[in-house]
Design a protein around this nucleic acid. Structure first.
Length: 453
RNA sequence: GGCGCGUUCGUCUAUCGGUUCAGGACACGGCCCUCUCAAGGCUGAAAGACGGGUUCGAUUCCCGUACGCGCUACCA
């Protein structure tokens, strides 16, 4: 039988990083087995769920490259969808639930109670055979001892989560339920429900939760809990996918950086770890840097322009050729695109803001050397990296100083920073006119500062 | 409180009772390279929660304790 898995989020206007990983693991399993990945929207809480909230989920999955074989095409519950077992919005499946509840009542498995419908739950412990956790024998809690039956339809007529979740999985032919470990204890209810409908439950695979760096539960409010922040910070989706896979799963063989294809090939459910993993933003950042360094320049350029625009830099005032050259000096030097505005901002401004902490880098000696360097630059015929380097080294030789003694003041004068892209290349991009202007201005400012301490 | 799950370097992990200084990665320290910063190369420090068993032998199997997480709704 072909594998059918699903991701069934509730549209809250937010896609949790843990939910994203659950979706990813489902998707990977489907792709690994050649099965079907289904997206179902659990929008039973009508008041809260909006079309925009659904779109947050759809866009998040698309951004990650997690595509669904069946499910909604848009955020509109009544809109178009793919697949033959829809609707894929729970809000549209009322009649199906009604029919199934009637079936349960007729079978004597459920009964009305004060306007609600309750399920006649077994009093025996239920054994859950979980692909990840192993065999779990769920004993009844003290509350369940007192009252094992639970509500499946509220007195206002709304069916509850446990019921609709099971009915949908049943009707949609789900073969493997891959979901967060927070549902492990609920699984006994679900298994009992499946059996009441006369079918064997699907296979279960409960994946451990993602925790904050301090080991506490990662909730909505926590830093980095929302998938959209990664896109906003200029993360590369493949890096996020790669990182998420490394939380609770290992490709073994000391591998860390893996392509999507490799992950699909290696991924399987039984190998998923049984314990929670803490989210390590630093390692994600490292992975992100790896992906940035190895991506094509075209893609780097695309991400970069987006990031600079988002940061509000007036790059449209500059020619595309200039922007391109500027970005070429930055390629592979950053770990996250959100750093770029800071890293390359000096290319796109006239009023350079000098890092106050580094003002001391233009003392009397440095100013003298910088002036000599300026003289050498003025007479340069070809203002390119090669000749700039030659000119600078020639001045250094004449002054009998190390190249660094010229490089640092010059960098500071032209970029306002003590670190950045390769100096010679950056000067070439800036061009003679700008470079001389900046040196003059830096010299003047430093002189001024020296006069009035 | 009850029920369930978990526990290897700071973090993510490898190890499917026995070739090991318990391996790798991120982060951190040092060195090299170098126009700065990254990157890269080399290198250093860093772990089996605790206590009992089982066994010739346990990180690995069992039990207990501690700690963490989850579930315990007419929420999903």
């Amino acid at each position: 039988m072909s594998v059918r898995v699903r991701f069934a989020p509730s549209p809250t206007g937010f896609l949790h990083i843990g939910g994203a990983r659950t979706a990813l693991f489902n998707w990977l399993y489907a792709r690994h087995t050649g099965g079907t990945f289904i997206l179902r929207i659990e929008d039973t809480d009508a008041a809260r769920n909006t079309q925009e909230a659904v779109e947050v989920i759809l866009n998040g999955l698309k951004w990650l490259g997690v595509d669904w074989d069946e499910g909604p095409a848009t955020g509109d519950p009544k809109g178009p969808s793919k697949g033959s077992v829809g609707p894929y919005f729970q809000s549209q499946r009322g009649p199906i639930y009604k029919k199934r509840v009637d079936e349960l009542i007729q079978k004597g498995c459920a009964y009305e109670h004060e306007g609600a419908v309750k399920f006649r739950m077994t009093r025996e412990p239920i054994v859950i055979r979980d692909l990840i956790v192993g065999e779990v024998k769920r004993e009844l809690t003290d509350r369940e001892m007192a009252e094992p039956d639970f509500v499946i339809v509220r007195s206002d007529g709304q069916p509850v989560f446990h019921l609709v979740n099971v009915i949908d999985d049943l009707e949609m032919g789900i073969t493997h339920v891959v979901r967060g470990e927070d549902h492990l204890s609920n699984t006994s209810k679900h298994i009992a429900l499946f059996r009441a409908f006369g079918v064997e439950p699907p296979a279960y695979a409960h994946i451990p939760l993602i925790l904050n760096p301090d080991g506490t539960k990662m909730s909505k409010r926590d830093q980095g809990a929302s998938l959209t922040t990664y896109e906003a910070e200029g993360c590369v989706p493949e890096a996020v996918v790669n990182y998420l896979c490394l939380l609770g799963w290992s490709p073994k063989q000391n591998r860390e950086v893996l392509s999507r294809e490799e992950i699909i090939q290696l991924f399987d459910l039984p190998q998923i770890l049984r314990h929670n993993a803490r989210f390590d933003a630093t390692k994600l950042q490292w992975l992100n840097g790896e992906y940035i360094r190895t991506m094509s320049f075209e893609r780097f350029h695309e991400f970069a322009v987006q990031a600079l625009n988002r940061a509000g830099l007036p790059i449209t005032r500059f020619s595309t050729g200039y922007i391109r050259s500027a970005l070429e000096t930055c390629a592979g030097k950053i770990k996250q695109f959100s750093e770029l505005a800071d890293y390359a901002g000096f290319y796109f401004t006239d009023e350079l803001a000098y890092d106050p902490a580094a003002k001391a880098s233009l003392g009397p000696d440095e100013r003298a050397r910088l002036s000599r360097l300026r003289e050498a630059f003025v007479v340069l015929e070809h203002f390119n990296a090669t000749s700039l380097e030659a000119a600078l080294k020639e001045v250094a030789r004449k002054l009998e100083v190390k190249v660094g003694a010229l490089v640092h003041p010059c960098r500071f004068a032209c970029t306002g920073r003590t670190s950045g892209p390769s100096l010679y290349h950056l000067l070439e991009v800036l061009g003679k006119e700008r470079v001389l202007q900046r040196i003059d201005r830096a010299l003047a400012l430093a002189e001024e500062a020296a006069q009035s301490p």
